[in-house]
């Protein structure tokens, strides 16, 4: 029987057991972050550099990320590649490591990413040794360019950030999973653990969740639920789900006559 004991996600030279990445921006208290991390089993936690405040330990969001986790600063607030690059460099200088989630957003209504600027930033940062995880609208051509640019993974959105609308981009994400030789991580939009499981079942490498966990009635319990769902979805993917058909297989109306020979 398959299990997950030897199933690792490899990114940037790291072997990750957990395929749930956690966002931190919307918790009602930074103090909930370590609890949510523990409950979910997440090993990668993203924090906006704009919120990192090394001079104020008690209120510094980054200091609530457990030391054993990979801290992945994100470039929230960047409006173009140059700003994303600048933020990533500042993050590295601030001791946040060399992972970076590129987020370039020029649309404050839907928070949809600017794929073009994201590709440019990826190219620069990858060449500087960053482990680059770009957040994009799912698009095969863009994803291929990100591969060429040196991205460590591709992070397509499931639906607009914070919308909790689920995997609305399913067909496009499926194409990326089939065609892109990098981990595909669904970032943004997943609102329910069942949606995370659905994404994992179709073969995405991981999911990143913030709003659905941070704004739940009990964020820690929801973190646990997402952790379980991601594991269930991954195991289901490895197990090889049965084919979905639209009719019962009891008869073969078109070819049944062949058995009579």
């Amino acid at each position: 029987m398959k299990d997950l004991s030897c199933d690792f996600l490899e990114i940037g030279g790291q072997k990750l057991k957990s395929r749930l990445f956690l966002g931190t921006g919307k918790f009602s208290s930074n103090r909930l972050i370590p609890e949510a991390v523990k409950a979910s089993g997440a090993q990668v936690v993203t924090v906006a550099l704009r919120r990192v405040d090394p001079g104020f330990e008690e209120e510094n969001i980054a200091s609530y990320v457990p030391k054993e986790c990979i801290l992945m600063p994100n470039t929230s607030g960047a409006r173009n590649a140059a700003e994303a690059v600048r933020i990533a460099r500042l993050a590295r200088e601030a001791g946040c490591g060399n992972w970076v989630k590129i987020e370039v957003i020029t649309d404050n209504r839907y928070l949809l990413p600017d794929n073009y600027e994201t590709i440019k930033a990826t190219e620069i940062l990858a060449s500087e040794g960053f482990v680059v995880l770009p957040y994009v609208s799912p698009d095969l051509t863009v994803a291929r360019k990100l591969v060429e640019a040196g991205a460590a993974a591709v992070m397509p959105l499931g639906a607009p950030i914070g919308s909790n609308r689920g995997l609305r981009t399913k067909e496009l994400v499926r194409i990326l999973v089939e065609e892109i030789p990098l981990p595909v991580i669904v970032d943004a939009g997943l609102g329910r653990p069942s949606e995370a499981a659905e994404a994992m079942e179709m073969g995405v490498a991981a999911v990143l969740v913030n709003t659905a966990i941070a704004t739940a009635g009990d964020p820690v319990a929801m973190a646990r639920a997402f952790g379980l769902a991601v594991e269930a979805g991954r195991l289901a993917y490895l197990a090889g789900p049965g084919e979905v058909v639209e009719y019962a297989r009891a008869s073969s109306p078109l070819t049944g006559f062949l058995r009579e020979e």
Binding site: F27, R50, D53, F56
Partner: peptide
């Protein structure tokens, strides 16, 4: 803010 279940945010931008 804490007593109402809200996180006070002291920093939400980084001069670039």
């Amino acid at each position: 803010l804490y007593s109402r279940g809200y996180q006070p945010v002291y920093k939400d931008w980084q001069y670039l």
